[in-house]
């Protein structure tokens, strides 16, 4: 889903770069509000973790495999803004050093995988979790909404990607949308299984590391003392 250079036209990548830059600026402001230099090593190592996790392919069907995206996982574990910034760093390094995603398409890739796949899906998750918590325990509400919205995060990102390619006049929407969404609906199941298992295990071992657990999303995400303790 990393779009290379040349697939988007200037108006599309220009707009998306502006949107992503704006969101990134706001995220930096949000994170700095509650955080000093203390979390920098932690975010750096988490970025390295996301990077390594993306290298573990998971089976999809009959021997084919997909790879983990991790945007939703980062947001659930670190809180939305810190999770988003980790994704920005991962995408930046992938673009510059691994030629995975283009330079002019960086804004579009951040938009798809960070804003849509991360922030938007996180807030959908957050409200779903709040609703479900009324009916069941917070733990099962958290896991159920993680499963559902991890799937949505991948599928929504693939829809955004197809629309961008179509708006740029590269491929007609009618052909690219079913192909992209079809593949990613399957990959999304893998993403949902993995994210839910990871959150469940971390919840068991170190509940203090799951920022979206029993606290408002931003406040707890960014108090360094709690993460360090």
């Amino acid at each position: 889903m990393h779009i290379p250079d040349g697939f988007l036209d200037p108006k599309t990548w220009g707009t998306l770069t502006a949107a992503s830059a704006g969101t990134t600026g706001y995220a930096l402001y949000k994170v700095r509000e509650k955080m000093d230099e203390k979390l920098i090593p932690m975010l750096g190592i988490t970025a390295a973790f996301i990077f390594a996790a993306q290298m573990l392919n998971f089976p999809v069907a009959g021997g084919t495999s997909g790879h983990f995206l991790g945007a939703m996982l980062a947001c659930v574990l670190l809180g939305p803004w810190a999770g988003f910034l980790v994704m920005v760093v991962v995408l930046l390094v992938q673009c510059l050093f691994f030629t995975d995603g283009g330079l002019t398409a960086l804004g579009a890739n951040v938009f798809n995988m960070g804003v849509i796949g991360g922030l938007l899906s996180y807030y959908l998750f957050y409200y779903a979790k709040a609703l479900l918590s009324r009916a069941t325990s917070e733990r099962s509400a958290l896991l159920a909404s993680t499963a559902v919205f991890s799937w949505f995060s991948v599928v929504l990102a693939s829809i955004a990607c197809s629309v961008e390619l179509a708006v740029s006049g590269t491929v007609p929407l009618r052909t690219v949308l079913p192909a992209m969404v079809g593949v990613h609906a399957l990959i999304g199941i893998g993403e949902a299984i993995i994210t839910t298992v990871v959150v469940a295990v971390v919840l068991q071992a170190r509940p203090d590391l799951v920022c979206s657990y029993s606290a408002p999303p931003i406040a707890q995400a960014l108090t360094a003392e709690e993460v360090a303790s």
Binding site: M42, I45, T46, A48, F49, A52, A53, L56, F68, L73, L77, I194, V197, V198, A200, V201, V202, A205, R206, L209
Partner: peptide
């Protein structure tokens, strides 16, 4: 991935 995360944290 879960144990990778715990170890990295």
């Amino acid at each position: 991935i879960a144990s990778l995360f715990l170890r990295s944290q």
